[in-house]
Write a protein that binds this DNA or RNA. Structure first.
Lengths: 118, 118
DNA sequence: TTGACATATACCGATATGGGTATATTATTT
DNA sequence: AAATAATATACCCATATCGGTATATGTCAA
């Protein structure tokens, strides 16, 4: 087996920064493909391919409008990411890190227990 | 170019669910590799390889303790993920989605403006 | 020193990827 | 119907991946 398909997960789909950029643009409202092409400065086929991935994981919805295809954000599949990562929020708090260092200190003392304080 | 290296980002590193599992275990405290092997039921080489990736993106720290290597969580690199994804939080709120539908409704009416109501 | 334990790495295979370029598909205007 | 615009897809390539298995490295014990 190789790496999990990009279409497996929102996790995998969103690992690509271009796709995050696309979502960031769409967060400002519906857009046609060419708008995205212009705004992101990417070749059109790439944009279409990224949009396909995003669509397959449900992160965007499409709507036909004349000869345009309007893509719209659907953030729902991002929820599991948020749920997962938010549990780690405290781990980058300063207070937590301070506590962490204290624990390190204690651990170090414990390690050198009984040895002379060189 | 192929897909971005797993060691590029926390985004990429964490796209793999096994690595998320490892972090979840380490959230409970420092662990030796074999502990992780037992707890996750994965072959040891795989665990070591995943730990390498996590180390390279700074998500874990290592400490030598005798013939054990103790791995510890460092959540800091997850912060950008949290920062990014939290901006989409409102997009899966029910209220927001309700608003969204209203806008759809308006858009549809606008589209059929002037045409006979078939 | 020898042996046992803990961990890391090397190697192999299959696979999906992202980028590029060309072309197909579909819709619109004239 | 023909030309044009908007978008999707088909190919090709190079590459890093994960899984598996074997082995190297390092540390402690007897």
């Amino acid at each position: 087996m190789a790496r999990a398909a990009t279409t497996t997960d929102a996790f995998n789909a969103v690992a690509e920064s271009r796709r995050r950029q696309i979502l960031d643009v769409l967060a400002g409202g519906e857009r046609a493909v060419n708008d995205l092409v212009r705004l992101l400065g990417l070749p059109q086929p790439q944009v279409s391919k990224h949009l396909r991935v995003l669509r397959e994981v449900g992160l965007v919805d499409v709507r036909d409008e004349g000869r345009h295809r309007m893509y719209r954000l659907n953030g729902r599949p991002l929820r599991p990411i948020h749920e997962w990562v938010k549990n780690y929020e405290r781990s980058w708090n300063e207070r937590f890190e301070a506590l962490d260092e204290v624990l390190d200190e204690l651990k170090r003392e414990e390690d050198s227990d009984g040895e002379p304080h060189a």
